[in-house]
Design a protein around this nucleic acid. Structure first.
Lengths: 141, 141
DNA sequence: TTAGTTGCAAAGGCTTTGCACGCGC
DNA sequence: GCGCGTGCAAAGCCTTTGCAACTAA
């Protein structure tokens, strides 16, 4: 579940400085950066990295399944490197912080057969909204 | 659950032609238009209506709770007038069509206390992804 | 060597904003 | 008549794209 970099090497990825830096930025728990935040952090390590490369790389990481795209209610998409452990999200409606959470049952089972309209259902996304301790205390939002 | 227009009147809303037309466009089951689709349909009834008014009105309907904003993976937000009956969504990853669905249990209960990180959780959004019968048959997407 | 990656800058889609005019109440 | 709502056009944010130069393998 760690060492995204190693997995990318194993896949035979062409490992450029830009891609390495982006992978490094994405290490950690509860990491859910926007493309722009990834870019800002990448620039600290590699000043000449461009936004286009960040978008390209994130898009590829998503398409090979190493990163998951998260769309909360805000504008910009966020990128979640925790792609190998099924989980859902808890979002603070005050400050927007996201935590990974794990549910007690399989949410797929909550959709009755009679509610499937003939679809072949393959995925489910569950997002909880609330206030984090800091925002609840400060009355933010 | 029907007659959005009447509810708006009861709220003392200033009822302009534009707002009336937008409310009319939003009547019906399984309606999940983007702002632009609402505008296109509104134009058929009131050719001079502007996009800005559509955005303004939709934004207000959302903030007073008469319409729910739906963010699927696509780009543009969609607007769901079925705000008074709790429900979730089933999205076709082929053509993007959305159906309202009703779950067998309360998804809020699936988040264990130990996974709440001190948040006061107030809402949950559940979205299922799959292929509608048409797209499954045609191999679209 | 060479195919894939990068940076730049421009364009694109969706949404918001500023301001003068118009209209519901 | 007053104040909010509207239309227009321009700007804004996030993202994608075209293309020549570059570089990992």
């Amino acid at each position: 579940m760690s060492d995204l970099l190693q997995r990318l090497r194993d896949r035979g990825w062409r490992l450029t400085a830009q891609r390495r830096v982006i992978a490094e930025v994405l290490e950690g728990e509860h990491v859910h950066f926007t493309a722009d935040e990834v870019h800002a952090r990448a620039v600290e390590r590699l000043p000449e990295i461009s936004r286009a490369s960040v978008y390209n790389t994130l898009g590829e990481l998503v398409s090979i399944g190493e990163v998951v795209e998260v769309t909360t209610d805000g504008r910009a998409k966020r990128y979640d490197p925790n792609a190998h452990q099924p989980h859902q999200h808890l979002v603070c409606s005050g400050c927007g912080v996201i935590r990974d959470v794990h549910l007690s049952g399989d949410p797929m089972g909550a959709l009755p057969e009679g509610e499937r309209f003939g679809f072949s259902v393959s995925e489910v996304s569950v997002t909880y909204y609330g206030r984090c301790p800091a925002c609840a205390g400060a009355g933010v939002g």
